[in-house]
Structures are given as C-alpha cells and as structure tokens.
Amino acid sequence: MKKNIFITLLLLISSQLLVGQSKANIEEINRKLEQHTQSLQSIESDFEQIKHIDIFNEDVISKGTFLYHKDMKICLDYKTPSPYRMVIANNRLMTDMGGKRSVVTLKSNTMMNEMKAMISACMTGNLSAISSDFDLTYKENAEHYIITVTPRKSGVSNYIQRIEIYLAKKDMAVTRLTFYENEQDYTLYKFTNRRFNTLKNDDPRLAI
C-alpha cells in the first residue's frame, strides 16, 4: 500500500516537472524563431522530396532546389526525375512542366491562399504567421525542435492531416518537413546545403 502511494506520488511529481520543462521550451522556441525570422531575408537550399505511397509500399524520390524570399516568394525547382518548377509570388502560382507554363491567380481562391501560407510558414519556420489557423505542438530531441502543425479549417485539412517540422537547434533552420495526408501516405522534404540571405528580390528564378 505504502509502495503504491509512493509510486503514485513519484509519477505525479515527474509529470509536473515535464509540464514545466515543456512550457519553458515553447517560449524559448518561439523567441528563437522570432529572432531567426526577423533576420531572414532569403533561403536557398537543395532538397530531396520522398513521396511514400503506402498502397505500393514504394517511395517516389525527387530532387531539386528550394528558394524563398521574404517578399512571400517561393520556388521549388525540381531537377529529377523530371524537370518541373513551381513559383508562388505576388498572389500568383506558376507551374512549368518541361517548358509548358501555367499561371493561376490565388487572390480569390481561399483554399489555395491557405495552402500558400502554410507552405511558406512550414518551409521557413515562420509559424507565427499561421498560428491562428493551425494547432501547434512541440517536442525536442538532442539536435532538433520538432513541431507538429495540425490544420483547424476544413479546406486544408481535406488534403493535409498534419505537418511535422524539424528545426535545427543551432540555427533554427527547417531541416525536415513532412506532410501527412493520412497515417500511411506522406511527403517528406529534406533540406541540405542551406544558404541564408544570398538571394535578391529580383532573382529571375523567383519571377513569374
């Protein structure tokens, strides 16, 4: 009986300590993120995209370059397996499939605007931009803060169940990003060779 009471007390005390530790870390993470995003002008990095298709138990791997400029310009320039470029800038989305260009306006499309905001926030770590429309939970390991982003609104949640972001503790850069469509199918991005504040606003690769 005394042993059971002791174990119960021990568990209660430990859980309070963990809650305290988690809360302090969230404030620290948000402080570091705010410092990082305030100084961030641009990002240029290589990426590897792994699309896991559970039905076939196979992965489709794509590689390319990721560009971001603080004026809400994003470019995903795929090199393999097929050349493809997607640019979001000035409320427009441009896709280029091997020379065939298509441009759509995002202004009147609420869902596309939400997707644009989510992609931008998740790929750069600027989560304060989406905190009102998404639930955020925090974990950490030795080298990373791990943030899980869950959409609240039905538009984005029809396509994305949740997002998992790995932020490197040393520079608060996004190193891994996983979009879960459901529990089985996901798209994982790994960012390497990251370079900050090297791009100009008029970089032609960010133009539509």
């Binding site: 039905i55 097929s82 997607m86 798209t187």
Partner: peptide, 23 residues
C-alpha cells in the same frame, strides 16, 4: 502534371498518381 505509378492486380491494373509536389 505529376508522376503516375501502375501495377497489375488480380483482375486489372491499379494506377496511383501524385502531383510533382507530392499531393
């Protein structure tokens, strides 16, 4: 555009397509 995968099944073929972005 995107990538389509195809594999035979017991009575036909299964096709799964994703956008280049992974959707």
């Amino acid at each position: 555009g995107g990538i389509m995968m195809a594999r035979s099944t017991d009575n036909g073929v299964r096709l799964v397509a994703t956008s280049y972005f992974g959707l």
